[in-house]
């Protein structure tokens, strides 16, 4: 049972408290991917000369997707810490907290994509019939990020230093995901390992659809679906197993 009213109230409250007194606060969080783009674009065009067509748009799409994933994981962990007193004294499930914590990154993702498409259309590009697959990809992205967060919160509650470990892991994953580079830069032997990572698959496919107007092969689409399915079900299962233990630890 999902209590929609509760999620709404939690999201509204978090929004008010986070950006209270700083109207610009929210715009800063929207600006983040564009600032990252500026840095990475500069480094990878002037110092390390990457030869990729439409590199700015290529990079921006990857960064927006990546940022959403990272924000969801951190916001979920922060929400659990912030709502500790509520969780330890009411029947509220941690899953509700994670779902409501993921709404704000989702709004940011949406608004970032709006800006992305504005730039995209203004620079003379167009989307094709393949666009529907992009929407599916975004849904899969949200599912993956939320499912992974459901597991992370347990480790976050159990181990005080988990955050630092996650910081390092995120850095590794950032460079192990084709965000600033193309999959062609990876040797063929390694590609299959790279493509076990659902975020990498989503980024690669999203670029194919938006920038090159091509759909991935049906077989590859199936593999993406299966990987996301396994991760979501697996994470939910782990969450169910760790839930009682989490209640004791809170």
């Amino acid at each position: 049972m999902i209590d929609v009213n509760l999620i709404k109230e939690l999201v509204k409250t978090d929004f008010k408290l986070k950006y209270y007194g700083s109207f610009l606060g929210f715009f800063w969080s929207l600006l983040k991917p564009f600032l990252m783009l500026g840095i990475l674009y500069y480094v990878f065009t002037y110092f390390i000369k990457v030869q990729i067509e439409n590199f700015a748009l290529f990079l921006l799409l990857g960064i927006i997707i990546w940022n959403y994933f990272v924000d969801t994981t951190y916001d979920s962990m922060n929400a659990i810490t912030g709502k500790r007193s509520i969780l330890s004294k009411t029947k509220l499930s941690p899953a509700i907290i994670v779902v409501s914590a993921s709404i704000q990154p989702e709004i940011t993702l949406f608004l970032n994509l709006v800006v992305f498409f504005l730039i995209f259309f203004f620079s003379g590009h167009a989307i094709g019939m393949e666009f529907y697959y992009f929407i599916i990809l975004m849904a899969l992205l949200m599912l993956t990020a939320t499912a992974i967060s459901l597991v992370l919160i347990f480790f976050h509650v159990r181990f005080m230093d988990f955050r630092h470990i996650w910081d390092v892991f995120i850095q590794i994953l950032f460079w192990a995901t084709p965000i600033v580079y193309n999959l062609d830069y990876v040797s063929l032997n390694f590609q299959r390992w790279f493509l076990l990572n659902p975020i990498a698959r989503i980024i690669v496919d999203a670029r194919a659809v938006i920038l090159y107007n091509t759909l991935p092969e049906p077989k590859q689409m199936m593999i993406t679906l299966i990987i996301v399915f396994i991760i979501s079900v697996g994470c939910y299962y782990i969450y169910r197993m760790t839930r009682n233990r989490m209640a004791d630890l809170l």
Partner: peptide, 17 residues
């Protein structure tokens, strides 16, 4: 930092109203 009104709506929602 929230008003009485906002707190009532939040607390009520937490309590399942």
């Amino acid at each position: 930092e929230l008003t009485a009104r906002e707190n009532i709506y939040l607390y009520g929602a937490i309590m399942g109203m």
